[in-house]
Nucleic acid binder design. Structure first.
Lengths: 225, 225
DNA sequence: TAAAATAACTAATATTAAATATGTTATGAA
DNA sequence: TTCATAACATATTTAATATTAGTTATTTTA
């Protein structure tokens, strides 16, 4: 596989260079495009290696919004818009079109890198790829889970809870957090709902159930050891 | 747990009300402060429940920048600065001080909410850093501790006590202070509770246990020598 | 649409782990 | 040496989770 890259789209060469340097320091590969049309071309040609796009709004030929719209027709690649002052009113519009993040110029190196990394992090586990951790295989497309090749049946909640745990592998998750993310509402009345589901999942996972660790006083953590 | 809240700091009552209403529609709890000093007070009192601060720059008594600076001494809570037009030149300055986001007035409800949610989203899993002092590695995400690469098992209190000591590396901590910060309540009945925990931690740390020094008559200090 | 089946949640109890208390010994400072 | 403090080992209490059973809600299907 080619190296994963970040595509920088900006008409100012100086700006591209600047960003490129920041990112290089953090060991990211970069690709560049000087206008919207080029951006689309470069994106098409490297679709599979581009993990994120930094996209300037104001550009000749084809502006950032148009590029955004076109790319979103075929891809969910994370996109950060680079806006100059005074363009803020467009922002909302952008969120609806699927912008993941904004950075206003001028920005500091730290900010840039921090946002890029944060965004990569929160989008990484997202796509519908089959995960296989320690013999537990999750296929989001088919919504199936198999253990050592043998499919197991999980209910909706069980499935989502397991996926959430696996996506956050190695991280101790509080019950609150689990509730907010798997149940997505604040819910009252502490009960042992999560525990029940955990128990069921563990049972269904058989001896691999032990990968779901109990973190006393906190919650649970998925870890293959 | 108390309800998580967003702290709104603005000297104009009308503005606070406006923001509050927007946020309420999205089911966020809010707290308010009418000037910088009040902001600090409210923040102190509700530290654990405040998940985000909306902070106006221009305020009587203590302006937004000062508040920001003070809060950043003790907390990494996400902060969005509310700036009026023409204040933007300070932005870069702000980012360095730890501003996470800006919103210029006037703003639309949707923009406000979108930014708040985007920021919350990207800070929630806020990658806490792994500390490594003298071969003792603490991973707050996984809530694990390893000594010379080998993971050790710590109970909740043990873990928190160790983290507290390590965070205050080189500082002699009184028992009172430890109690207030690790147990976080004033607790009665002289006991050698802390000692017991210290003992257990030392044991689990093996020969690195000696990094926890006893300061006779005071308490303990973590120091790598 | 009613009955049956399944899943989600709740509640109660059992079990286990951890926190704290206690009694005693060891250590260091005056 | 004496007194104060800390270390240590163990006992007790407290708290959290696991487990089981039962209720409610939702979905399926006859």
């Amino acid at each position: 596989m080619e190296k994963e890259s970040i595509l920088i789209v900006d008409d100012e060469e100086r700006m591209r260079k600047l960003i490129k340097d920041f990112l290089k320091q953090k060991n990211y590969n970069t690709l560049e495009a000087g206008d919207g049309e080029e951006a689309l071309k470069v994106f098409e040609a490297n679709k599979d290696n581009i993990i994120l796009i930094l996209l300037d709004v104001m550009m000749p030929k084809l502006d950032g919004w148009s590029v955004l719209r076109q790319i979103r027709q075929t891809s969910k690649v994370p996109i950060i818009m680079l806006t100059a002052r005074g363009e803020e009113q467009d922002e909302l519009f952008g969120f609806e079109l699927g912008v993941d993040e904004y950075i206003s110029k001028p920005f500091s190196p730290k900010i840039l890198v921090a946002r890029v990394e944060a965004l990569l992090k929160r989008t990484e586990g997202d796509p519908k790829e089959i995960k296989d951790v320690g013999g537990i295989k999750i296929d989001p497309q088919g919504r199936t889970v198999s253990v050592d090749g043998k499919e197991i049946e999980l209910s909706l909640r069980e499935y989502e809870l397991l996926v959430y745990l696996v996506e956050n592998q190695g991280i101790a998750l509080s019950r609150d957090k689990i509730l907010n993310n798997v149940w997505n509402y604040d819910y009252y009345g502490d009960s042992r709902t999560i525990d029940s589901h955990i128990k069921k999942i563990r049972k269904k996972l058989g001896k691999k159930g032990k990968y779901i660790e109990t973190i006393r006083g906190i919650g649970y953590k998925f870890e293959v050891k």
